[in-house]
């Protein structure tokens, strides 16, 4: 295991935001996609998940955002054992997690503004309470001039930033991103990365799955490396850009 203080199998379960203990995952009766994963993330930490295609990066994220259930082992989020959560308790946990999905999952019949405001609506906030915050956030991610646009009319990078805005609008405790820079040019990738760093500085625990080894190397952040369903932890490789 790494000596990084953010990743520790021995840290107190109550202090960890995410804790995996010998977790495995298989879909249906298929082969194990993940096996024996054990790691813990401390609050405010920033990690990448790396590995070749099919290594299980997205599956690991799915387990964290409650998009799949582990077939073995135990997962704790915010100190709560996911296996013991009732169906009524799971939405509250989900609301503490912001996710930038690999395929973005923007709602095509809603404007950029409505898409970004979605988690706040779900939380039950009144429009008057969050209008200005959403507008400010969209301006911050560079979509100030595209608030009314429908997703189909947005460029790839704009969609990506909209998905990020939606993921962070609720000020989540955990921010997950699955290949957030996969479809954008290097300049945009850098901007997006800096956005995540800024959110991390504001207190969010960040976990990003990526193929972009350069970004990982330049970031100076630790990485959870997946290969063949197994996990190894890689210490920071360089300085932050």
């Amino acid at each position: 295991m790494s000596r990084n203080p953010d990743i520790s199998a021995a840290s107190s379960a109550n202090e960890d935001v995410v804790r995996f203990d010998n977790v495995s995952l298989r879909y249906g009766r298929g082969p194990e996609v993940l096996r024996g994963l054990s790691f813990a993330l401390r609050p405010g930490s920033f990690h990448f998940i790396t590995g070749p295609s099919g290594a299980g990066k997205s599956s690991l994220l799915k387990l964290v955002y409650l998009g799949a259930r582990a077939s073995g082992g135990g997962i704790r989020l915010f100190g709560q054992d996911l296996a013991r959560l009732t169906a009524d308790q799971r939405p509250a946990v989900r609301r503490r997690i912001g996710v930038v999905f690999q395929d973005l999952l923007l709602l095509d019949h809603l404007s950029a503004f409505d898409n970004a405001a979605l988690p706040l609506r779900i939380r039950g906030a009144r429009a008057s309470e969050y209008r200005s915050d959403v507008a400010e956030l969209l301006a911050w991610v560079g979509l100030g001039a595209r608030m009314h646009a429908m997703p189909a009319t947005l460029a790839g990078g704009e969609k990506q930033r909209l998905a990020i805005a939606r993921a962070v609008v609720n000020r989540p405790d955990i921010l997950l991103a699955d290949e957030p820079t996969g479809n954008v040019d290097p300049d945009m990738a850098l901007r997006i990365y800096r956005l995540f760093v800024e959110l991390n500085r504001l207190g969010a625990t960040v976990l990003i799955a990526t193929h972009d080894q350069d970004m990982v190397a330049r970031s100076g952040r630790p990485a959870l490396h997946l290969d063949g369903g197994a996990l190894t932890v890689r210490a920071p490789q360089g300085a932050a850009p």
């Binding site: 709602l107 429009a127 209008r131 595209r146 608030m147």
Partner: peptide, 19 residues
């Protein structure tokens, strides 16, 4: 474009497509 969008006047759209 953006000039025609006023966040202060924004009303939440239906979460299911209208028709």
């Amino acid at each position: 474009m953006s000039e025609s969008f006023d966040p202060a006047r924004w009303r939440p759209a239906p979460l299911l497509p209208a028709t």
